[in-house]
Nucleic acid binder design. Structure first.
Lengths: 188, 188
DNA sequence: CTGATAAGTTCCCTTAAGGAACTCGATGCG
DNA sequence: CGCATCGAGTTCCTTAAGGGAACTTATCAG
């Protein structure tokens, strides 16, 4: 099938989906972050083909999203746990869950709820601005080129488009307000 | 290939990924929400097979995520625009983008940045608790069963697991704090 | 010794993704 | 008037990824 590789596209969504967009990958992460880490449990919970599960788990370990850990020596037993990189996928899952709850829960209501231990309430995720805390929506934000942007496969049209937006801003409007991002690990 | 259908699983992540987990679907939504709506533009920007693009767009229109709109009569020309349901996928894209920025941006930095028009700053998304505004992480939250929860394919193991957690809470700990969710549209 | 459990592998078959060419209606242009 | 062009798909062929089910290997319980 030679699926188009997306890891090299100059777009973080493309890079993230290249690994993550697989339906199984999302559900595997859901399970692992919820505490289901054994191969057989995952296979049984998801009803996934064992062959595909093997492939997904290998990929996730290669990418450093999961780690394979021996949790018992005799008999030797392994389990998969999320690394920091894996745990940071949680907002993606929360965002997906929220959307699914809102548009597909139907009459019976959502299948699960999230309990925030810190404030001891059932809650939902809000996409908040890291600066002002207000809600971020497609309407109150715009996309501008970043330092790693370029035009190429996957950004053939969108690259020039957002570049033209930047040109319409006052020249150094953003000279001194970089986005607050955590320490960035070395990319691959 | 008979891909396992995930729409019927009692899990909002499964339901959401069933539609959304396709890599192309995410990138199509990125483009449409950024203002790229024409068939040829999408095909060219993404480098996607036109056949697959047709299939994805049809699916997205069927699901009510996109709408096909005639933007010019003579000659007749159509374009795709996001519905409310589609615009609400934005947090999912932001979460994916964030994660991709953090783990795959490398030396050159992220390919794009998000400008928050309301506070006029470049920003990133934070997954915030709808109640207290604090950051939600895999570590400070727990999953509990919701009204629509059940054990079945896709939740064979995880269903009973989170149900057992609920049993360990004080009986009516959450009797009066339902999650704040917007008006829920009728499911399908 | 038999059976069960965990964690994968192997094999075959179907189907979806890629790629490239082709269609079809409506202009635009010389 | 005739030809090229553009937008928006459709068709055809090949390849490879997913599903299903059986098989393997290692370890322990009874």
């Amino acid at each position: 099938m030679t699926r188009t590789p997306l890891a090299d596209v100059a777009c973080s969504i493309a890079r993230a989906t290249d690994l993550f967009s697989d339906a199984w990958t999302a559900l595997i992460m859901r399970d692992v972050l919820t505490g289901i880490g054994r191969f057989d449990e995952l296979a049984r919970d998801l009803g996934i083909s064992r062959k595909v599960l093997t492939a997904r788990l290998s990929r996730l370990v290669e990418e450093g999203v999961l780690a394979r850990e021996r949790y018992q020596e005799r008999p030797p037993r392994e389990r998969y746990i999320a690394t920091e990189k894996g745990r940071e996928l949680y907002p993606v899952l929360l965002a997906l869950m929220n959307w699914g709850d809102r548009w597909y829960a139907g009459e019976t209501g959502p299948p699960a709820r999230i309990h925030h231990l810190t404030c001891d309430r059932d809650t939902t995720m809000v996409a908040a601005c890291a600066h002002c805390g207000e809600r971020l929506t497609a309407d109150n934000t715009t996309q501008l080129p970043g330092p790693g942007g370029r035009t190429g496969p996957g950004t053939e049209v969108i690259g020039p488009l957002i570049a033209s937006r930047a040109a319409q801003q006052t020249p150094d409007a953003n000279a001194s307000n970089n986005p607050p991002s955590g320490p960035r690990p070395p990319g691959r």
